[in-house]
Simulated assay, not measured.
Amino acid sequence: MPYNLEKLEELSGGDRDFIVSVVSVFVEETPSDLQDLEQAVKAGNYDAVYKQAHKIKPNVDLLGMEGTKSLILQMEGQAKMNDGLPAIEEMYTLIAGQVREVITELKTDFSL
C-alpha cells in the first residue's frame, strides 16, 4: 500500500467521517494541484514549482506517503536554489505517478 493512514487516524482520533472527508478532498483537489505543478515545471518557474510542491506536501504527509514526501522535499530544495530543472522534471514524473497511484487506490478503498 503506497499510503498509510496512521497520522490521519491519530489526528482524527479514529473519526471515520473525518478520515473519509480528508481522503475525499485529497482525491478531488490533488489532480488540479499536480497539474499546476506540472505547468510550473514545464515553464521552468522555480518560484511556482516551490510554491506548488509546498502546497502538496502536507496532504502527502498526512496520508503517510513518505517516499513522495521525500521527493517533494528534494524538489522544494532544488527549486529554492533555482537550479536543477532536469532533476525537478524527473522528480515531478515520479511524484505524479505515485500520487495518481494513491488516488486510484483511495478511490477503490473508500468507494469514492
Rank of each mutant, 00 (worst) to 15 (best):
I103R: 08
G64L: 11
L73W: 01
I56P: 08
G67N: 12
L106W: 02
M65N: 07
I19C: 01
K42W: 09
A40V: 15
S32N: 11
R16V: 07
R100I: 05
R16Q: 13
R100A: 05
L85M: 13
E101T: 15
N82W: 05
P58G: 10
G97I: 11
Q39R: 11
A48V: 06
V22E: 06
D47G: 14
L106R: 08
S21D: 03
D15Y: 07
A43G: 12
D83N: 11
E76V: 09
Y3L: 11
T93Y: 02
P2M: 10
V22H: 02
V22I: 15
M65C: 01
V25H: 04
M1G: 09
Q74P: 00
E66A: 02
E105D: 14
Q98Y: 12
L94I: 05
R100Y: 08
T108L: 05
D61H: 01
Q78E: 13
Y92P: 02
L106D: 05
E29N: 12
K55L: 03
R16W: 07
V22D: 01
D33V: 12
K69M: 06
K57I: 10
S24W: 00
K80N: 04
Q98E: 15
A53Y: 01
D17K: 15
Q35C: 10
T68G: 00
K51C: 11
I56M: 09
I72D: 04
V25A: 14
S12K: 07
F110V: 00
T30R: 02
K107N: 14
R100N: 13
E90V: 15
K55M: 05
S21F: 00
Q35G: 12
E66R: 00
L71N: 12
L37M: 12
K51H: 10
F110D: 05
A48L: 03
A53G: 14
E101I: 09
E9R: 11
H54R: 10
